[in-house]
């Protein structure tokens, strides 16, 4: 008999179930483990939080005069005049949401890169994949487990704040006019946020799967987003051909955002009037490449060479 503390081996009396979402424990444990250090959480989530509060107030300010004047029973002409005056000062809600989401894209990169860049790299470094792939999970489960861990942080920085602003717009608009008249903005905000979170998460995880150190993955991610943007801007500046903007995923995401929200390109934004298919081609290629690289790397992690 073994001389352990209890000297007792107990049989497991429960049941081992086959779950549909086999990756869920991996995601939950990943979120638990990556969120242990609180300082990065505070640093990366405070700016989106402050932004959400400010933009919520601005959205409220856009609708408030109409509602207040209406409730006071003043005549409709005054109400319309006040609303018009406010509209001149405060941009319309759709533009506010688009602008807000555009700013938050950068925080999504920061958060996903910080919390996601170690997900594959540290597993490889610590040999964790040998333990995972001795369990009844597939490579796809493993990928989803990591993907949703990183995407969780992206959602916290861009999707949730975007939806909160939409909620404020719904609640503060008179007669639910935002919900009835501009419901598509809510849908588009969610769609655009998920598109961006997906692309960034794929890039971060791809970088993480190629290296054994988290720091290298972080550098690779920022290089990937920053270098093409500088290059594209420089090339456009030299050649005056705006199609060079399509080299940058960051700029392409902006182009896709304007198209999705149907915001006209004018002024400096006219630079983003290049062919939309180029933007989709670049982001699509990036996504497919990342998936292919990860498929190869995860296979190597399961089938240990």
């Amino acid at each position: 008999m073994a001389t352990t503390n209890t000297e007792l081996y107990r049989r497991f009396g429960g049941q081992l179930r086959v779950r549909f979402f086999r990756f869920a424990p991996l995601t939950l444990s990943g979120i638990r483990a990556t969120s242990k250090k609180k300082i990065p959480l505070v640093l990366l989530f405070t700016p989106p939080l402050i932004g959400t509060v400010i933009f919520s107030f601005m959205v409220y300010a856009r609708y408030a005069p109409e509602v207040i004047v209406g409730e006071m029973g003043a005549n409709q002409e005054i109400a319309a005049a006040v609303a018009e005056r406010v509209a001149e000062q405060v941009p319309d809600v759709k533009r506010q949401i688009v602008g807000f989401t555009r700013v938050l894209r950068v925080f999504a990169i920061l958060a996903i890169a910080w919390f996601g860049s170690g997900l594959f790299a540290e597993d490889r470094q610590c040999g964790a994949h040998q333990l995972y792939f001795a369990r009844p999970i597939t490579r796809l489960d493993y990928f989803f487990g990591k993907f949703f861990t990183a995407a969780f942080y992206g959602a916290g920085t861009v999707l949730v704040p975007g939806l909160v602003i939409c909620l404020v717009a719904v609640l503060s608009s008179p007669n639910w006019s935002f919900l009835t008249g501009e419901w598509d903005v809510i849908l588009k905000t969610a769609l655009y946020s998920m598109f961006w979170i997906g692309i960034v998460t794929l890039v971060v995880l791809c970088a993480s799967s190629l290296v054994k150190r988290r720091a290298f993955a972080l550098i690779a991610v920022f290089a990937f987003f920053m270098f093409p943007s500088f290059l594209a801007t420089a090339l456009v500046g030299i050649t005056k051909d705006v199609r060079f903007f399509a080299l940058s995923t960051l700029i392409n995401s902006r182009r896709i955002g304007y198209w999705l929200f149907d915001i006209a390109s004018s002024g400096p934004r006219s630079m983003l009037s290049y062919d939309l298919s180029l933007a989709f081609l670049e982001t699509g290629t990036v996504a497919v490449l990342c998936l292919v690289i990860m498929a190869i790397q995860i296979r190597r992690m399961e089938v240990v060479p």
Partner: peptide, 9 residues
Amino acid sequence: PENDCLLPR
């Protein structure tokens, strides 16, 4: 497994 295997963090 034989070698060191840890779940990071």
